[in-house]
Computed example of a mutant assay.
Amino acid sequence: MKYLVYILLALSLLINAGCNNQESTEEHELFISAASSLSDVLSKLGDAFESEHPNTTLTLNYGASGKLAQQIQQGAPVDLFLSADQKWMDNLSEQKMILRNTRANFTQNKLVLVSTDNANTPINNLTELSTSGLDQIALGNPESVPAGSYAKEVLTASGIWNDIKNKLVYAKDVRQVLTYVESGNTDIGFVYASDLKRSKLVTEVTKIDESLYGPINYPAAVMASSDTKEKAKAFIKFLQSDEAQSILAEYGFGS
């Protein structure tokens, strides 16, 4: 009888060892929808995460936060959402589409007004936009693009929104705003500080008082429908690590 117990114990250990080995070699694919302003830095963050989790592959989808949230609401298979503002994460939270205890802010940004390096845009403050003679001012669509919403907030607080509405050119996301300005299709545009650091073709026109708009915090959360919740949680934890924060700072993010 004693030998039978030993045999059963040995078999149990072998089975457990096999299960643990299977878990350690199991392949995971993590689908991440992220604000377009993160497109450069997230690629590097993804490489760093994958090197620490060699059996995990990240599939990245970028766009305006509002559009991405709408895709999730329509059933897009997403494990993790990285938004450029709180509004769209709040919408998903209200619909119980995220795991609320996983929600965390992982970086910040600032709003900047830019033009091409060779453009002649002598603007000392935002109120001069209404009398500057500029034909076109680019910003993200305030309905779906957080950078555009922040820009509208700034222009409204400055008292010039109604004066320049006819000059505004709406873009599908903040990266398109940057492209408009870089190519000279628009005179100036509202982008993030991280976009200014990224581009060698634009320069800051004038400082924007940060009291004119709310704090730009980037929240992350795991989707309630995710089949890879633990890996998604691990990625959020990684975003808050010193290594990830250093990479984000390198790309112009942070306080």
Rank of each mutant, 00 (worst) to 15 (best):
T156C: 04
K165S: 12
T156K: 15
Y150E: 02
W161L: 13
E182Q: 12
S149M: 07
K167W: 01
A157N: 13
A147G: 00
L168D: 07
D173H: 06
L155G: 05
K167P: 00
W161Y: 15
Q176P: 01
Y180L: 07
L168F: 05
A171I: 01
E182S: 13
E143P: 11
V174C: 04
G148P: 13
G148D: 12
Q176R: 13
G140C: 08
A157V: 00
V169D: 00
V169A: 04
I164F: 04
S149G: 07
K152F: 01
D163Q: 15
N162S: 08
V154Q: 02
N166K: 15
A157D: 03
V145T: 11
S158W: 05
I164K: 12
K167E: 02
V181G: 09
P142V: 06
T156E: 12
K167M: 05
V174Q: 13
L178M: 05
G159E: 11
Q136L: 15
V154E: 01
T179I: 06
A138D: 12
I160L: 08
T156H: 10
V154T: 01
P146K: 07
T179G: 08
Q176A: 02
S158I: 04
S144K: 14
E143D: 15
K152D: 02
Y180D: 07
A138E: 09
D173I: 03
K152Q: 05
E153L: 04
G148A: 04
A157S: 10
I164Y: 07
D135M: 11
K152G: 00
S144T: 13
S149N: 12
I164H: 06
A157R: 14
E182A: 06
I160T: 12
T179N: 14
L139Q: 14
